[in-house]
Write a protein that binds this DNA or RNA. Structure first.
Lengths: 231, 231
DNA sequence: CGTGAGCTTGACTAGGTTCAAACGGGGTGG
DNA sequence: CCACCCCGTTTGAACCTAGTCAAGCTCACG
C-alpha cells in the first residue's frame, strides 16, 4: 500500500508505461493493492468481472476448470501482465497464484473514468488484449499441431521469453510451476512432460540441475524442434 | 458497391449496430466493398495489418500455416463477423474463403478517425476483440482436454450457434467446410473426423442426409458428450 | 534421519494416425 | 442421356504416440 509506483517491478509494464511523470499517481490513486498467498485465487471464473489487475510480483496461472475435474491453463501470468479484461459479466478464467502474488487492482469503472482525459490508457488496455489474443492463438496452434516434445520445446522458449524481461539474458531460469501445471498448459499427461524433458536433456538441448532449474543449452536447436526442422 | 447498408446481411453485426440511423452512412462512406472467390484470401498472415473487414456474405476460415505444411484453423468466420484487428504490424492469421465472400473493408486509420466523434465505435471494436478472445479460449480448452468425439460434438454445437443468427432455429444446417477443414480446426486427422461423425450418427445424436447436411437430433445429448456427463 | 510431495522411469494399453481401399455423388464428355 | 471420372468421404487394418497404472527416485523439510 505504501509503496510508490516508481519502485514497482511492473512500472514499465504495458499499462503503467502509458502514464508518464506525475500521471502515474492518478492511476495509483484509484488502485488497490492486493496480496494472494500461494495456491490462492486472484480471481475466479464465475466471479463478476468488475476488477482488472496488474501483477506486481509473483506468478500465477490463467486457468479453466471443467466439471469432470480436468483443467486447462490458458497462460502463465508474470509481473507486468494485465489480467481481468473480459467481455461478458463474468471472468471465464480463474487466476491462481503459483507463488505469493502482489497486484494492483482497479475497478473497471474507475479505469474507464480516466479514458476521457487519458485516451492513451484506453488504447493501451486494448493493445494488451490484442497481444493476449495473439499469444492464445500461438498456443492454440501448438496444442492442435505439435507432438509432446515439440510442445515442451515451445513451452521452454515461451517461458524463456517471459523471464528475460526481468532477469536479463541468462540461459538459466527457474520454473515457478509444477510438471502438472505444464501438463495442463500443453494438454498432455504429467508423465509425458517428464519424458519430454528427459529426451531434450538426452539430446543436449537443455540441462536440469534440479527439476525446476532449466538451462537452455541450444536455443536454436529448440526452435528447430518446435518447427520440426531438426534432423 | 451500390448496395446500401440497410439491406446488408451484417447490418446488425456488432460493429455496424453501433451506428444508428444516418450515422451508418458515415461508416459506409469510408468503407470499401471487396469480393473474394472461393479459395481466395481476404487477408494473408504476412500482410501488414492495415485493414479491417466486416463479412457481409460467405464464410471463411481464420488459419495459420506452418512451415511443414500443417495448418491450424483458429475460427470460422460468418457474416457479421469482424476480422483483422491485430496488435503488431502484421496479421498473424490468414482468412481464406470457403464460399464466395463479400466484405466491407476499412482502413484502420479511417476507422480510428471516427473514434473521437463516435466513442461507441471504439468500445465496440474492442468488445469484439474480447469476444474473439473468449471463443479462442473455449477452443483452446477443447483442443487441450477433449477426445475426438467430444471435439466433434463441440464443433457441431459451435457451428449450430453461428448459423442460428441468420437461419432461425432449425435443427439442420449445411456445413460450408470440408472434413479436412474440420480436422484442421480441431487438431485431428480427417479420418478421425469421419469416424466421430459416424459414431454420433450411430448413437442417434445427429443425422447426415448428405455429408455436409447435418441435423441435430439431440442437442442436450451432444452437450453431455462435450461435458463428458453422458452414461 | 525419516517422511512425503513431486518427479522420473518402466510396462502395458488405448485412442488416434497412417496407409490403403472402397464408396458415393456431382459434373463432364461422349 | 448415360457412362465415366474425380474428389471428398467413409471404412478397414496395422502401427505408434501418448495415456494409464505402478513402482522407484529425489530432495526439501520436519
Amino acid at each position: 500500500m505504501g509503496l510508490s509506483c516508481q519502485a514497482c517491478l511492473a512500472r514499465n509494464s504495458a499499462l503503467c508505461s502509458a502514464m508518464v511523470g506525475d500521471e502515474i499517481e492518478q492511476l495509483f490513486s484509484i488502485a488497490h493493492r492486493v496480496k494472494v498467498d500461494e495456491g490462492g485465487f486472484l480471481l475466479h471464473e464465475e466471479d463478476p468481472s468488475k476488477y482488472v489487475y496488474n501483477l506486481s510480483s509473483g506468478v500465477c496461472t490463467l486457468e479453466r476448470l471443467a466439471s469432470d475435474g480436468s483443467r486447462q491453463i490458458m497462460a502463465f501470468v508474470y509481473p507486468g501482465d494485465f489480467i481481468g479484461i473480459n467481455s461478458g459479466p463474468f471472468y471465464s478464467v480463474s487466476a491462481q497464484a503459483l507463488a505469493p502474488v502482489v497486484a494492483c487492482r482497479w475497478h473497471m469503472k474507475d479505469l474507464e473514468g480516466l479514458y476521457p482525459t487519458h485516451p492513451v490508457l484506453e488504447r493501451k488496455v486494448h493493445e494488451i488484449a490484442s497481444r493476449v489474443l495473439a499469444a492464445t492463438m500461438d498456443q492454440l496452434f501448438v496444442l492442435g499441431r505439435k507432438n509432446a516434445v515439440e510442445k515442451i520445446a515451445y513451452f521452454l522458449l515461451y517461458i524463456d521469453g517471459r523471464q528475460q524481461k526481468f532477469d536479463g539474458h541468462s540461459d538459466s531460469f527457474i520454473l515457478p510451476m509444477t510438471r502438472i501445471d505444464i501438463a495442463d498448459y500443453l494438454g498432455v499427461a504429467v508423465e509425458t512432460v517428464s519424458r519430454a524433458f528427459s529426451q531434450l536433456k538426452r539430446r543436449g538441448l537443455i540441462e536440469l540441475s534440479q527439476a525446476w532449474v532449466v538451462t537452455l543449452k541450444d536455443r536454436e536447436g529448440l526452435r528447430q524442434v518446435v518447427e520440426k526442422t531438426s534432423p
